[in-house]
Amino acid sequence: MHPETVHITPYRTLAWVLITLLGLTFITITATWIDLSALTVAVALLIATVKAYIVLTYFMHLKFESSLFRVFVFMVLFIYVLVIAFTLSDYLFR
């Protein structure tokens, strides 16, 4: 079989990723203490999305896979967002 160049993520990188994720968790908890009224959910979702992005990129190794994988992930998320949007086109306009 054809040998592919293997990318080994260093332990140090993974440790930094973990620290960043823990930091973001801390921020998202503290953010709820501040009253941002309507923005609370938006902020929580935004931080969660940043965390998800980091997990996908480093832990799930997307950064080092062929671009096909990234295209697929993007496509799936795009379709899912559209599904939510079209469903809300019913609920938000009733």
Binding site: I79, L82, V83, F86, S89, D90, Y91, L92, F93, R94
Partner: peptide, 17 residues
Amino acid sequence: YFVWAHHMYTSGMSTTA
């Protein structure tokens, strides 16, 4: 993938939908 609600015109959906 995005035409599903044409089964639901009479279900009380919003006019926009």
